[in-house]
C-alpha cells in the first residue's frame, strides 16, 4: 500500500496547477523511491517529468509499485479543497480503484477526506538519456517568466543563444524584433537573483514561446530555474524542489529554415 504524508498540501497543489494545462491524464508512479510522473503534451512537443522523492514526505511508505492514473482536472478540484498550510496524506491500496487524500489542519482539529476514482492510462514512457549539456543557465524564475511573456507579445518563437558573453533571448515578429541579454551576475545579498552561465560550447536553438510560457506556471515552486541546452536536443527547464525533488519540462526545438 501507499501512504505518503506531505507537510504542506500547497506543494502538490502548485505542481498540479503548473502542469494541468499541458497534460490531462497522468500516471503517478509510486514506488519506494517516491512518486514520479512523466507525460507528453497532446502534440508531443513537450514532456513533463516530476519526481517527488520519498524524502519529501514524512513518513513515506510504498510496499510495491503502484500506478495511480489520475485526471489532473479532478485532482485539482480536490486539492483546491485543502488549505495551503494543511498536511496532506495520500493513501492507496496495492491494486486501487481510488486514491484517498486526507487534509489535516495543523491549527485546528479539522480533518477532510476525499477519494478520487482512478483511470487506466496506457501511457508511452520515454527514456530520457543522461545528457552533458553544452550550456546550463541558472536564473531567477520570475525573470525567465518575464522574458518569455514579454517576447510572446511579439512572436511565437524565441531564439536562445548562449555564448561566453551571456545568454540572449531574441525574437522577430510582424511588428518588429525584440531581445533580452543576460550576463553572469552575482548578488551577494540576494543570491536568488544570481545569473550563472556554465558553458562548454556556444549554443543557439529556437523554441516555441507558447510552451515556455506554460512551463513558467511553475515559477511559484522555486525562486530559481535552470535552463540546460545543447545544440539539436530538447531544452530542459528545471524547477528544483526541497529534498532533491524536481519538476522538469523538456521542449523539442524548432529546426530548419
Amino acid at each position: 500500500m501507499l501512504e505518503a504524508r506531505l507537510e504542506q498540501a500547497n506543494l502538490l497543489k502548485k505542481v498540479v496547477d503548473a502542469i494541468k494545462d499541458l497534460v490531462q491524464d497522468c500516471n503517478f508512479d509510486c514506488n519506494d523511491s517516491g512518486v514520479a510522473l512523466q507525460a507528453m503534451d497532446n502534440s508531443h512537443v513537450a514532456l513533463v517529468s516530476m519526481m517527488l522523492k520519498a524524502e519529501s514526505f514524512s513518513p513515506f511508505r510504498c510496499d510495491r509499485n503502484i500506478a495511480l492514473g489520475i485526471n489532473l482536472t479532478s485532482l485539482m478540484k480536490v486539492l483546491r479543497c485543502a488549505q495551503n498550510e494543511d498536511i496532506l496524506t495520500l493513501k492507496a491500496e496495492d491494486a486501487p480503484d481510488v486514491v484517498n487524500l486526507v487534509f489535516e489542519s495543523s491549527e485546528s482539529d479539522r480533518l477532510s477526506e476525499y477519494d478520487i476514482k482512478l483511470m487506466d492510462i496506457d501511457q508511452e514512457h520515454l527514456g530520457i538519456p543522461e545528457t552533458e549539456y553544452a550550456a546550463t543557465i541558472t536564473m531567477p524564475s520570475a525573470e525567465f517568466q518575464r522574458i518569455c511573456r514579454d517576447l510572446m507579445a511579439l512572436s511565437e518563437s524565441v531564439a536562445i543563444e548562449a555564448t561566453k558573453d551571456g545568454v540572449k533571448f531574441s525574437c522577430s515578429g510582424d511588428i518588429g524584433n525584440g531581445a533580452v541579454t543576460l550576463r553572469s551576475h552575482t548578488n551577494v545579498e540576494k543570491p536568488d537573483l544570481n545569473v550563472e552561465i556554465a558553458l562548454s560550447e556556444p549554443v543557439a536553438l529556437t523554441f516555441s514561446l507558447k510552451y515556455l510560457v506554460n512551463f513558467c506556471k511553475a515559477s511559484g515552486l522555486s525562486s530559481t530555474v535552470k535552463l540546460c541546452l545543447s545544440n539539436e536536443v530538447p531544452l530542459l527547464v528545471e524547477y528544483g524542489l526541497a529534498s532533491n525533488s524536481y519538476l522538469r519540462f523538456y521542449l523539442a526545438p524548432k529546426i530548419g529554415d
Binding site: 508531443h44 512537443v45 513537450a46 527514456g127 538519456p129 536536443v233 530538447p234 529546426i255
Partner: peptide, 14 residues
C-alpha cells in the same frame, strides 16, 4: 520558417 520537432523523436520509447 522553422519546423517544430517532436519530443518523441529525441527520447526512446520504453
Amino acid at each position: 520558417s522553422k519546423n517544430q520537432t517532436s519530443i518523441a523523436g529525441f527520447f526512446k520509447k520504453h
